[in-house]
């Protein structure tokens, strides 16, 4: 369970996130949509405890992110934007490091490592330094790191950015397969992804929620049935052909 209450983040006079309130329950795959600079990444950074909110509160699995950060961080897996990782480390050393920090030991450590390495097909690059990997592999290492401790909550910032169509498909299959009993929040620019993966979509712009609905209902707002048109109508406020006014 993620509960977000009147979350606001100000940078000087700029309100990056403006009074956001929503909650996400287990089994939901929430697609976080919005134009660049809408506040998607800022919101994710606050949920994961990287940035402190200006005001408002966030609870993850019942733990307040500000007052009990370690407990909240323990139940989350996070893929930051761009999938940063220690470039000079080999994939194996990096995953070992994450397993140590996550306190995995014994059989569970081994089975979790084997699981993410096989799920993300990292077996062939285990001994390579991360800096020598292709973009697709780097992204998969980032995902492996987020999944390693099998967290109940996954926060993925643009998980398929920079992947080729086959890799995108694999990552989506992976996310779908995990979605049954987890909370997954993904941010993306790719609307078809929301359609394929998510059972809920939140569209934000200028830090405010403009729409919170299932992808199916959002599509129904347009006569053409295209999510792109609905997205443009909602985020720009301009009339878009086929989308009913005040949609």
């Amino acid at each position: 369970m993620i509960e977000i209450n009147h979350l606001t983040k100000r940078y000087g006079v700029l309100k990056a996130v403006d009074d956001l309130t929503f909650s996400v329950a287990a089994g939901e795959v929430l697609g976080f949509l919005g134009p660049n600079g809408a506040g998607k990444s800022t919101t994710m950074k606050m949920i994961t405890g990287f940035l402190a909110p200006t005001s408002g509160s966030i609870r993850v699995c019942g733990h307040d992110v500000e007052s009990a950060p370690l407990a909240a961080k323990t139940c989350m897996g996070y893929l930051p934007e761009g999938a940063p990782a220690y470039a000079e480390m080999t994939v194996r050393a990096f995953l070992d490091f994450i397993a140590n920090v996550r306190g995995l030991a014994g059989d569970r450590r081994k089975s979790r490592l084997d699981d993410v390495i096989s799920r993300l097909a990292l077996g062939s690059v285990l001994e390579q330094p991360i800096e020598t990997l292709s973009k697709g592999f780097k992204r998969r290492v980032g995902l492996a790191q987020a999944l390693l401790h099998d967290p109940p909550v996954l926060i993925l910032d643009e998980p398929t950015d920079g992947l080729d169509p086959n890799q995108k498909h694999e990552v989506r299959t992976l996310i779908s397969a995990m979605s049954k009993d987890k909370i997954i929040v993904i941010s993306t620019h790719i609307l078809e992804e929301v359609d394929a993966l998510c059972n809920r979509a939140i569209i934000i712009s200028n830090g405010r929620i403009l729409a919170d609905d299932t992808p199916r209902n959002l599509k129904a707002r347009s006569a053409t049935g295209r999510l792109d048109d609905v997205f443009r109508a909602i985020t720009t406020g301009a009339p878009v052909q086929g989308v009913a006014a005040h949609a």
Partner: peptide, 14 residues
Amino acid sequence: KSGTIELLMTLPVT
């Protein structure tokens, strides 16, 4: 520079 600070600070370490 590399953005790993975001990774480090969202791991369960103080």
